[in-house]
Design a protein around this nucleic acid. Structure first.
Lengths: 244, 244
DNA sequence: TTGCTCCTCACGTCACGTGAGGTGGC
DNA sequence: TTGCTCCTCACGTCACGTGAGGTGGC
């Protein structure tokens, strides 16, 4: 006969776990010797290996208890389900490994691929780090707020950036971050932006949505010049709207 | 700005988890709106995705807390360790799938391969189910008790079984399970077993060990005839020992 | 005698889950 | 007004871990 630690060691569980399985009724309490010590036979080894095999597979103890005295048919059906869950778990872990690899490097983890590409495009064009970060933060907020809209918006943004005029305006906007609040160039910049602001009119491509406000309010955090730029742009949109 | 459920949904965690991370100091408490509701920005999304990526990889929250404000070097070193742990976990799960497959079928899960082969050998020779089960139980107990000895013992058993005389004796032993306690054939069987019993003398191959007693005591559970057979064998060994 | 194993409570741990009771926005 | 979200306690859960205090075998 085996002592509790011989049993536990041989099967690869702790003594405490064996006692726990007794308490939960998963493993039959064996006979005791003269000292009150539990003494185990071969059947206990078999039962405990069964329990360990199932718990290792992630099966909760309550389910293990059911399965231990289930019909062979139901048992093998359950085993098939457990196996499928294990296979799924393996796929999940593989995904987690890939996510983990992205943790150190860049924003791949936080944004859809096309947005990451767009941000890389900005860097190539010489856009400053703070502006890129502002864009990144805006796209994160937009993704959380209206994920379904992001593909359309980013497609337009990328099309815009192919236009040399838009590129020039974007780089000016980037520079404006550090301009003085009352720099006269701010007004001129808004004038030049007119064709793009029209999109935000009712019926336009980026019709004045909660998302637009989301972006504008956030942009204000970066500098007074940008805050003023947002105010001027809002005024311009109101003018265009009144005229239309 | 995002509400707590917008944040949680977008990242794929529960609202309760977000609150838990605040409590544990993993995620900075954001500002509140007029109603006392938490309002989150882009940085919270980034931070929460970091936390989720690490916890999904099985990192305990205490460790996550350390890593979130660790130097990039220490961080990427830790990530490498976590990735290695994930890879190991995947290997473990694959092993568990194989174990699970053995749960329904036979004794592959409970015994080393060579013992399983030996038991299959017995079945081919026409040995009865109860005797095979007794052997199985004995080998389970021996494996738990003296795993290092099992390969040697099983090798000898398999060599024995190649001997036609031993085969005949083994089949007689199998039959004896159902004999009457005072069947005269029991004595004759023990006489014929003499050459094999000699191994259990001091200095013999199976010198009278705790393991031998383990097996004998267990065998008694199956039938009175076997119990008597064990007693007769013990007497014979004592005789042989006295003569030696 | 000392060290090791065994025993039975019973509280602790980890990462949240789950009401309980109440308030604010549409 | 109703339903949904939000808030803060605070106890519950799952599978054991970890002493606490005591006994038995070598």
């Amino acid at each position: 006969m085996l002592t509790i630690s011989q049993l536990a060691d041989h099967v690869g569980v702790t003594v405490r776990a064996v006692r726990h399985y007794h308490q939960r009724g998963l493993l039959a309490e064996p006979g005791r010797d003269a000292s009150g010590y539990r003494r185990y036979g071969a059947q206990a080894v078999i039962d405990l290996i069964r329990i360990k095999t199932l718990t290792d597979a992630g099966v909760p103890l309550a389910r293990v208890a059911e399965l231990l005295d289930a019909e062979p048919e139901r048992f093998s059906q359950a085993v098939a389900e457990i196996d499928a869950a294990l296979a799924q778990r393996i796929r999940d872990l593989r995904r987690h490994r890939r996510s983990l690899a992205d943790l150190a490097g860049g924003e791949r983890l936080f944004l859809p691929a096309e947005v990451v590409d767009f941000l890389d495009r900005l860097r190539v064009l010489g856009v400053g780090a703070r502006t890129v970060q502002m864009e990144r933060d805006n796209w994160i907020m937009l993704s959380a707020h209206s994920p379904g809209q992001v593909p359309g918006w980013i497609a337009q943004k990328r099309a815009d950036l192919a236009d040399p005029l838009y590129q020039r305006l974007y780089l000016a906007y980037d520079q404006a971050l550090d301009w003085d609040v009352d720099d006269p160039r701010l007004e001129r910049l808004v004038e030049e932006m007119e064709p793009y602001l029209e999109r935000q009119l009712p019926g336009g491509a980026n019709a004045g949505s909660a998302a637009t406000e989301l972006v504008a309010s956030h942009t204000n955090d970066y500098s007074p010049a940008w805050e003023r730029l947002n105010r001027l742009a809002a005024k311009k949109i109101a003018e265009l709207s009144g005229r239309g």
